[in-house]
């Protein structure tokens, strides 16, 4: 059962490096190599991928997805490949370690505020957070709790799939866990989509103008 949980692979200058971190590096190297290879041999493949992500994200964001495509697209590609890499023997999915999803969720948390401030300016963004002032504590709680739930959802789904496969493998090796292994690929892709979709929804919610300024915008003829 201990195989499921990350172990310290080696120590780098006294800092313990877990094997999930090594797997993250493997995923990064694979993605970079594949991107370079496909970009040289058939660039249309990469264009198709970018177009697909662009369509998906602009539908979710309900605006042009160009400014958000680097962040959200890389999130989608990285999480999808990180989830799928657990199928390879001896490799654990990096997202099955609680630290990776928390890091990704913290990135999403800060980018929501970054894009919100860039869209409206610092003062207007803070005012939009506290549009009725008494709702500010609820807003802060929801910001924090949705970040936690974003991380825990990804982690729990991937880890539970790993545990189910490991338990079945201990009971009846080789062929019985195969259907569930296939199901874990499906779950991994779905979770990558859901993580990206929720990140897009949160960013789009952070970009929304508060009610009063919306009315001001519609009143003014220039806008």
């Amino acid at each position: 059962m201990n195989d499921i949980f990350p172990e310290v692979a080696f120590r780098l200058l006294g800092i313990p490096v877990r094997n999930t971190v090594v797997n993250t590096w493997i995923v990064m190297a694979l993605l970079t190599g594949l991107a370079a290879l496909i970009g040289r041999r058939m660039p249309t493949g990469l264009e198709m991928l970018v177009d697909f992500l662009d369509d998906l994200l602009s539908e979710l964001l309900e605006r042009r997805a160009d400014p958000f495509l680097p962040l959200l697209g890389s999130l989608a590609i990285f999480i999808a490949s990180a989830n799928i890499i657990g199928v390879v023997p001896y490799l654990e999915p990096p997202t099955g370690d609680v630290n990776t999803p928390i890091a990704l969720a913290v990135i999403v948390f800060f980018s929501v505020h970054y894009y919100g401030i860039r869209e409206m300016g610092l003062f207007d963004y803070l005012r939009s957070l506290a549009s009725p002032v008494f709702l500010l504590p609820l807003e802060i709680i929801s910001q924090v709790s949705r970040t936690i739930s974003l991380a825990v959802r990804l982690f729990g789904n991937i880890l539970s799939a790993e545990i189910i496969v490991a338990v079945l493998f201990a009971l009846a090796p080789l062929f019985v866990p195969l259907p569930l292994q296939g199901f874990s690929i499906f779950t991994g892709l779905l979770q990558a989509y859901i993580f990206t979709a929720l990140a897009a929804v949160y960013i789009a919610a952070g970009l929304e103008q508060p009610f009063e300024t919306e009315q001001e915008n519609t009143d003014s003829p220039t806008n």
């Binding site: 539908e59 825990v152 959802r153 729990g156 789904n157 539970s160 859901i194 979709a197 929720l198 929804v201």
Partner: peptide, 18 residues
Amino acid sequence: TTLLIAMALLESTAIYVL
């Protein structure tokens, strides 16, 4: 799209228990 996101939110309760 909405259904998938809603399902993810609903499922997170089971994930918390897990």
